[in-house]
Design a protein around this nucleic acid. Structure first.
Lengths: 348, 348
DNA sequence: AGGGTTGGGCGAATCGATTCGCCTTCCCAG
DNA sequence: CTGGGAAGGCGAATCGATTCGCCCAACCCT
């Protein structure tokens, strides 16, 4: 590979002059500039990013850590973030934490060792706070995505309160009083918020949220099918069920099928997040559509802003999620969305 | 951040000794070693990857270029590759070529400027060969995935010939004689091979492959719905249709729905690649299951092998794909797969 | 005419590691 | 007693860029 010294020799100038031409850091006379540019073209010189990074202290790279690369929702987020990073002229380093506390620590350390300029993290359940200390100490800004537990940092996620409220109020509005939430892992922030919002909305409508109304499937990546089957086998089965994530929705659908239950005949169903190709399902899933595009875009925007000015106050963005009204909730195709009137005190 | 010099000072040894302790490149007495290790722990020193790369000429990073990050199949491949790269102690740089020749050139150049140790590329349709020249000149080994047009390089894809043959022979076996292939973009290598195999299998069975039997939807990422609708509107409509990719399958399903056609009542349908959540579709899709796991694993393995020994002969791996027998082809649920007898000369 | 300013370019230190050659001890065989 | 290794450690060059200070010549103004 040709180096900046080769170019300098070819153009009969000093190394520093070539550098100034390349970076536009100082005025260079037209004659010299064109000689240098010609030499660069002839030798097809590309600056050695590694050397450049070492000297300048900035790598023009951003690390992205997600908790499960193979989940549809994260795949979409990755695509959005990659696009943002690339168009900012930076490089994306991708790592998977596999929803595992220790692995998250490992990959964050690896990314810091690679001296990324910034990090975008979808933290795992019960994430070890030490990773943020590391970042702070290294002066590497962090943006949290999807899960937004810390108002002291830049973060962007979905507005769990209002989406949960709308989804719940719809089920109430069409007549259900015994509604259950398949919650998954309460250590996951989104799940946590959705569970709270669900309880509150039910209470505000004067409905009971018993111990049998929220299923905590515990840790890990499983879709929770077995637990859901056991849950459904209990007496006084709910008439409507909400799944608090896309993965859980698939688990629930598998459980229904296994138990020979039909939706919405035997039970009404609605879900959160994105379920890929849900339009081809039978019946079509009523669900909250996770705004992947907004979240990907805003995450990179927040990061760029902070890289430009480290002192800007931290910002939390709660992107609104839209509601897709399918037929799994029991409404006929194309029927208007019914929301129960708000009753009781507003939340917060 | 603490540097190797800080550690050296703390342990009262020279910089080179610390380096040897860290890398195990030379014997160090037990006493010195433990002093150095203690200093490293106390200062929680992490070697500066950038400096290390500059000096050693190797970055311990691998670039992955896919043609569309947001497609399910690539999402799965990304997950597999990330896992392989990470467990080899390397870092993954991800880039998206958006199925665009120019963008592919741009991102490859960016990755080379970052001095990746190796590249894994799913080349775009009609990829510019110059990118391989660049890699060769830079001494960066390349592994092609999914699309495997060049036997002179390491590459790993699906065995298009035998999977296409089996799928086609099944449709023939259950009685179809007028079968069409929705082929998509013939510039994509997988599509090219599948189309050839389709024609040959039909011919071997004594069936006609007319101009109306293969739909070339042309360039780009579209799912081809409009073209498929026009295609289906023509007279002498085929009784069975195969989609040559997952994206096209979704386009076809949308087209069928738009035209009010029911599967398999009005037309039999089968597909290639992975269609996410296809098990929940109605009817279940008969399709070739793309072996994402094998392809991801073998791609990283091939790359590691070549990094270890640049002179090993190039290898092409054609991973076998399995067939999922659903009901979209018209067979009842759980029925055995029927293959037409092979007639005529074997291919190649 | 002379001092100040400015434009254009050069040289060298620097970033943080790796690695090669050299030096000092120490041990042991001859 | 001494010469030759081996073990253990040190110093300095090096990777390829950035960037600061300095220098020279040209020009401007009074």
């Amino acid at each position: 590979m040709t180096t900046i010294a080769d170019v300098a020799r070819m153009a009969n100038v000093s190394v520093s002059t070539v550098s100034h031409v390349v970076n536009g850091t100082k005025r260079v006379s037209d004659g010299t500039r064109s000689r240098v540019e010609e030499a660069i073209r002839d030798s097809n010189f590309t600056p050695h990013q590694v050397a450049r990074s070492l000297r300048s202290g900035r790598t023009r790279s951003v690390g992205l850590v997600v908790s499960d690369t193979s989940q549809y929702i994260f795949g979409r987020i990755i695509a959005e973030v990659e696009q943002g990073i690339r168009s900012a002229g930076q490089t994306l380093l991708l790592a998977n934490s596999s929803e595992d506390r220790e692995q998250e620590k490992t990959v964050v350390q690896a990314l810091l060792a690679n001296r990324v300029d910034g990090l975008i993290i979808a933290p795992v359940a019960d994430s070890d706070p030490v990773i943020f200390e590391w970042c702070d100490r290294a002066g590497v800004p962090v943006v949290l995505i999807d899960r937004t537990p810390d108002p002291g940092r830049d973060q962007v996620g979905i507005d769990n309160w209002s989406t949960t409220q709308r989804l719940t109020r719809h089920l109430i509005g069409i007549g259900h009083t015994n509604i259950a939430l398949i919650a998954g892992d309460p250590g996951v922030w989104t799940i946590h918020e959705r569970t709270l919002a669900f309880r509150e909305t039910m209470k505000a409508a004067g409905l009971r949220v018993g111990s049998a109304s929220v299923l905590d499937t515990g840790r890990g990546l499983v879709d929770g099918r077995e637990q859901i089957e056991r849950f459904l086998a209990r007496k006084r089965r709910p008439t409507a069920i909400m799944a608090a994530s896309g993965l859980l929705a698939l688990g629930a659908l598998r459980a229904f099928r296994n138990l020979g239950m039909q939706i919405p005949r035997d039970i009404a169903f609605a879900s959160f997040d994105l379920v890929m190709n849900a339009e081809f399902f039978d019946p079509k899933l009523t669900s909250v559509l996770y705004p992947v595009d907004v979240i990907g875009r805003e995450a990179t925007a927040l990061l760029q802003r902070r890289l430009a000015d480290p002192d800007v106050p931290p910002q939390t963005i709660q992107a609104p999620g839209s509601l897709f009204h399918g037929t799994s909730c029991g409404c006929p195709d194309g029927a208007p969305l019914v929301l129960s009137p708000v009753d009781g005190a507003p939340h917060r």
